[in-house]
């Protein structure tokens, strides 16, 4: 184990400690049914709160995945500009034009319109 893991270790140790302090200090009255039911502005919760799948948000997530993978592919540009500037410029331009065309296609198809 290298020293680079120490921040991770401490960052995972501190929040549970804060939570433990809060747990020890907290006030604990007798639980009642109304307090323990999920909050719904004065109504009794009727159905299961886990809503069925919204296609709108799902499409957005798919779009995000596509673009995020492209970003991962573009990540090494700052380093490869050191090694081979001209060909990096060429490759960057080509891949961004492809991304742009994809974006225009999505736009044309209407999957970027939130309210339709």
């Amino acid at each position: 184990m290298t020293t680079s893991f120490y921040p991770v270790i401490l960052a995972t140790v501190i929040p549970p400690m804060v939570f433990a302090i809060a747990w020890i200090l907290s006030n604990r009255p007798i639980p009642s049914m109304n307090k323990l039911s999920p909050y719904e502005c004065g109504f009794d919760p009727k159905n299961n709160a886990r809503l069925p799948f919204s296609l709108r948000f799902f499409l957005l997530a798919v779009l995000f995945l596509v673009f995020d993978i492209e970003i991962v592919l573009l990540m090494p540009i700052p380093l490869s500009l050191f090694l081979n500037p001209m060909s990096t410029l060429l490759e960057t331009t080509i891949s961004i034009i492809i991304l742009m065309l994809g974006l225009i296609h999505e736009w044309n198809e209407g999957s970027l319109d939130w309210s339709s």
């Binding site: 302090i21 747990w23 907290s26 604990r28 639980p31 307090k35 323990l36 039911s37 999920p38």
Partner: peptide, 12 residues
């Protein structure tokens, strides 16, 4: 905040 009542909803 720390001395407030902790509540875990029954359905959570």
């Amino acid at each position: 905040l720390f001395t407030k009542e902790v509540s875990f909803p029954s359905s959570s």
